[in-house]
């Protein structure tokens, strides 16, 4: 199963709408980095509105993807993390400190633009 990655001007938009298993998550990591390389995108929004479980593995993959994209010159914003997911992440002791977050896709794009302009 592959997660579709959409391109919009300089941005890449991803909406994850399935229950992520490990393989899909790793595949996604690879796909996204390739896509950044191909398109030269400067900003990425990953929308997690439909994700209802993030365990420590998926959290690590997401955190890694943010750091990796950063290395390749693309800023990542995670959007739409559900309250229940946020609470479990905190309980797990995962804070994703380096990651920028936003309430929804729209806010995410605004934040990206602000950060890239600075």
């Amino acid at each position: 199963m592959r997660i579709p990655i959409l391109k919009l001007h300089n941005y890449l938009l991803i909406s994850i709408q399935i229950d992520l298993d490990d393989q899909t998550a790793i595949q996604f990591q690879e796909d996204l980095l390739n896509k950044i390389h191909q398109s030269g995108a400067t900003g990425v929004v990953i929308d997690l509105t439909s994700v209802d479980i993030i365990d420590s593995f998926i959290a690590k993959v997401l955190g890694d993807v943010v750091t990796m994209s950063d290395l390749m010159g693309a800023k990542v914003v995670l959007t739409g993390i559900q309250p229940a997911v946020a609470v479990t992440l905190i309980d797990l002791g995962i804070h994703l400190n380096e990651v920028t977050t936003a309430l929804d896709l729209e806010q995410g794009l605004i934040k990206l633009r602000q950060e890239l302009e600075e």
């Binding site: 209802d52 479980i53 993030i54 365990d55 559900q82 309250p83 229940a84 997911v85 609470v87 479990t88 309980d91 797990l92």
Partner: peptide
């Protein structure tokens, strides 16, 4: 929230 905790 507890459902998410348990599932996680």
């Amino acid at each position: 929230v507890d459902q998410a905790r348990i599932a996680t």
